[in-house]
């Protein structure tokens, strides 16, 4: 897992004077599941299209297996794509759709038959070969699109928000299935999504992007627990972000109180952003809390309650499995590893 299969170096992309990608540096290792995550317009799809060869970077180099592939057209790259709207050929049936790439490679028909049928089994749609595309449901089209791409044995599979059009239940199912398929075929997946939960559950590595720049690259656990800046903290899960001052290593004050924390490496008395995840608070009786406040609202979310606690300086979002009624006085308790310090952005 150390080989850099795809390497993007100093990629810039402009559309009519508007910068879409700004000095992007990113590498993808062999057999890795990498997710490009960000809000719409952050440049994640453009990055994917540059890897696929559908866009050429305005500046910078794309390396594949150490070779510059800037001028290699999509049909000559060992990369296949699952498009957002599936882009299945509706003048061909399921079998011919999947066989499309193999026929271009002039693979023998008997071998095509084997490989197509194996793919149909992999995506759990055996016997679907003769169906016409128009008669497939969204989830089935999705699977056929994946089969059509994978049958060519690409080194890399690019997936552009492939689950966006599916309903919640089907999406969850496909997430698990995609991950299983990736492990089974053992190839590199580059996945684009704006759904942070999807990114967290499926990826080996998440690349968080915003406004054409990479905000953070890391494992799902790293990204969730140690967001590098306020954008990442906000985009990945819910966060409380308050201004604070870092007095010295492992000592921060915010909301009129001083807390122990685990972070260091800031200038003395440097103004910082303090991030606390809603689920990290412990709700305690008012006299035991480091912060005290009044419950302003209560939402039942299934597993937990979402409680808005108003203190003097800030209204905190708190997730708790314990109920508190609106108007109650409650205390909030934090341990040092619940507090994440970030440079002011």
């Amino acid at each position: 897992m150390s080989e850099k299969l795809i390497n993007l170096e100093n990629i810039h992309k402009d559309y009519g004077g508007k910068t879409v990608l700004d000095n992007l540096n990113l590498y993808v290792r062999d057999k890795e599941f990498v997710t490009l995550l960000g809000p719409s317009g952050c440049g994640k799809t453009t990055t994917l299209r540059i890897i696929g060869g559908f866009e050429t970077p305005s500046a910078g180099v794309v390396y594949f297996d150490g070779k510059n592939i800037n001028d290699v057209p999509p049909n000559k790259r060992p990369i296949n794509t699952v498009f957002q709207n599936y882009a299945l050929f509706n003048h061909l049936n399921v079998y011919d759709n999947i066989a499309f790439g193999l026929r271009i490679q002039k693979v023998r028909e008997s071998e095509i038959k084997d490989r197509v049928n194996r793919m149909l089994k992999l995506v759990s749609l055996p016997d679907y070969g003769q169906r016409s595309i128009d008669r497939l449901s969204g989830g089935e089209k999705q699977r056929i699109a994946i089969a059509r791409a994978l049958v060519n044995h690409p080194r890399v599979l690019l997936l552009d928000e492939p689950l966006a059009a599916l309903d919640l239940k089907l999406r969850k199912e496909m997430q698990r299935e995609l991950k299983a398929i990736q492990q089974q075929v053992g190839i590199t997946f580059v996945f684009v999504t704006h759904d942070q939960e999807e990114a967290l559950t499926m990826s080996d590595t998440i690349v968080v992007m915003n406004k054409g720049r990479i905000q953070q690259i890391g494992t799902p656990v790293d990204i969730y627990n140690e967001p590098k800046n306020a954008f990442v903290a906000n985009f990945i899960g819910e966060s409380n972000i308050v201004p604070g001052v870092m007095h010295r290593d492992k000592l921060v004050s915010f909301c009129g109180r001083t807390f122990d924390c685990l972070d260091g490496g800031f200038a003395p008395d440097e103004p910082v952003d303090v991030v606390v995840r809603p689920e990290d608070f412990e709700m305690v009786p008012p006299e035991e809390g480091q912060l005290t406040g009044t419950v302003r609202s209560l939402l039942f979310m299934g597993v937990h309650y979402e409680i808005m606690v108003e203190t003097e300086q800030f209204t905190w979002t708190v997730h708790s499995i314990n109920r508190a009624d609106v108007g109650d006085r409650v205390g909030l308790y934090l341990t040092p590893d619940d507090i994440h310090i970030m440079h002011r952005s």
Binding site: I79, N80, T81, Q84, N85, L88, F100, I104, N152
Partner: peptide, 27 residues
């Protein structure tokens, strides 16, 4: 004709001539 279908053909290894013959013309 959906442009993404032409991109899909390219993606699957078709050059522009093959894309025309196998996708654009039939459609």
């Amino acid at each position: 004709i959906d442009r993404s279908m032409l991109e899909a053909a390219r993606d699957l290894g078709a050059d522009s001539k093959t894309t025309f013959r196998k996708v654009i013309f039939p459609l």
